[in-house]
């Protein structure tokens, strides 16, 4: 499956079907990430049940602490 993630076209392994799996794939801790799929913000409790599809535009914002 190919998705546009943070502006870049990325090939994802076939087993990744949900937002939760996607975050796991990128090793991003769910609780500190904000995810938008096709310009819709996804509530954290729905990460596991939100499917992603070929061609989706996904934005993942993760928080950092430096400064």
């Amino acid at each position: 499956m190919r998705c546009i993630i943070n502006g870049e076209m990325i090939d994802l392994p076939a087993h990744i079907r949900t937002v939760a799996q996607l975050l796991q794939h990128f090793r991003i801790h769910e609780k500190i990430a904000i995810v938008e799929v096709n310009a819709n913000i996804i509530m954290k409790e729905k990460y596991e049940h939100t499917a992603i599809a070929d061609g989706d535009r996904i934005e993942i914002v993760h928080f950092v602490g430096g400064g």
């Binding site: 801790h29 609780k31 500190i32 904000i34 954290k44 993760h62 928080f63 950092v64 602490g65 430096g66």
Partner: peptide, 11 residues
């Protein structure tokens, strides 16, 4: 926005 405090993240 944050359910948890990012911990041990990159500094």
């Amino acid at each position: 926005l944050l359910e948890d405090v990012p911990f041990g993240v990159a500094t």
